[in-house]
Simulated scan of single mutants.
Amino acid sequence: MYPNIYYIKNKDFSKETLYQLTDVLAKHREEIIKFRDTKNEKSKKIEILVKDDFEKLGFLHSVTNDTYPLFKKGSLFEVDFYHPQHKIAIEIEKSNLYSKVWLALYKELESKEIKHGIIMVPSIKYSKSKVENTFQLTYQRIISNSVNLLKNIDSLIIIGY
């Protein structure tokens, strides 16, 4: 199944919205996998690839406090996509997954405007001479290390692209 999905926490997250998001990813599957599997590509290319489709679903792209007040005044945080009506934030990560995923989670927890967080990571990552199941590692790290952090968010979903 593409893409892969793990629910870390799920309270009132719209299945229809999740299906719409995964349909967009499936539509662009070949290009996304090409970016995913190419060394030194940035997640920004995936953002640009899905931007028009996500915007049609009501998501704003590259959201800072200048475009929508998600964080305290003066914060320089940004989320890749945000849906104001449904209060969903999406972060797409590709490299430095250990630190980037924790930063994505922190940003989603820091905002009182975000009720549902989605973190998208590669399903697999080629690392030197081995292949890592980064999607499963991300899920395991968060589920094992963030139980108390998740009290302030209604839903957290990991999508492996």
Rank of each mutant, 00 (worst) to 15 (best):
E132A: 07
H116Q: 08
P69N: 12
N65M: 13
S127W: 13
I114V: 14
N4A: 11
K125L: 14
A26G: 03
F71H: 06
E31W: 02
M1N: 07
P69Q: 12
Y139P: 01
Q85F: 08
Y7H: 12
P69V: 09
K11L: 05
P84L: 08
K107E: 10
F54C: 02
Q20D: 10
I33W: 07
N10H: 11
K107N: 10
S62G: 14
K56H: 07
G74P: 09
N65Y: 12
S123N: 14
Y126K: 14
S144N: 15
F77Y: 15
K115F: 09
N40T: 14
L137Q: 11
A89D: 04
V50M: 06
E41Q: 13
E47F: 03
V63A: 05
K15V: 06
V63E: 03
Q140T: 07
D80T: 08
G74M: 11
Y139L: 02
Y106F: 15
T67Y: 07
D23A: 13
S123T: 12
S75V: 11
K42F: 09
G117L: 06
D52K: 01
R36G: 04
L21R: 01
K34P: 01
V147M: 12
K42C: 07
Y19G: 00
I48F: 13
W102S: 03
T38V: 09
K42M: 08
L137F: 08
K112I: 12
K87E: 15
K94Q: 15
Q140D: 14
E110M: 08
D23N: 15
Y82Q: 05
L109A: 07
A89R: 05
A26F: 08
